[in-house]
């Protein structure tokens, strides 16, 4: 396992769309292990997408199990993930290893259902809520060349939602 270098915006490669994974072999397992080692090298980091380390394939890992009081599916390996359903809208604060020294408010679906392949190519479905759902959506955005900066909302939006909901 190796800790890989994380790309930082304005590296234009972060804005590109990644390609589906077609080979489920040793290379993929090595990349997944490296992604995990890289994510764990940054305290507080709960997910990482392959394009963040310069590998433009539709692969992400998410693990929010270390956060207190958060519902989760454990360590998620998401290869060729697809959101099947989404619902609700929640604003929360996000930051990104690829965007140092900035955090901002982003509206995300409060719950999602997704289908993804695992390291061997088998299909799995997951239901994610709240913090984990946010983490998954953040990572999936990377696969489409989107950063949380593309989805910022103002504090004012947040306040209105909270007061009048």
């Amino acid at each position: 396992m190796a800790v890989l270098e994380v790309l930082h915006y304005p590296d234009a490669r972060l804005k590109q769309v990644s390609a589906p994974v077609t080979e489920f072999a040793a290379d993929l397992r090595r990349l997944l292990a490296d992604l995990e080692a890289t994510m764990r090298a940054y305290p507080g980091c709960v997910g990482l997408a392959a394009p963040q380390v310069g590998r433009f394939q539709r692969i992400a890992i998410v693990d929010v199990s270390s956060r207190p009081g958060v519902r989760h599916n454990g360590r998620l390996v998401l290869v060729n993930p697809q959101v099947l359903e989404r619902g609700g809208e929640v604003v929360g604060r996000e930051g990104c290893l690829s965007v140092p020294d900035y955090t901002g408010n982003v509206a995300r679906a409060g719950h999602i259902r997704l289908r993804a392949q695992d390291a061997t190519g088998g299909y799995r479905e997951y239901g994610c809520v709240d913090y984990e759902a946010r983490a998954v959506q953040h990572e999936l955005d990377h696969l489409d060349g989107l950063l949380f900066l593309d989805r910022l909302v103002s504090r004012r939006d947040l306040f209105r939602r909270k007061v009048y909901k």
Binding site: V46, G92, G95, L97
Partner: peptide
């Protein structure tokens, strides 16, 4: 007054 903890997600 409404307090909302902010748990910033880093991904």
């Amino acid at each position: 007054v409404r307090l909302t903890p902010i748990d910033t997600l880093v991904g």
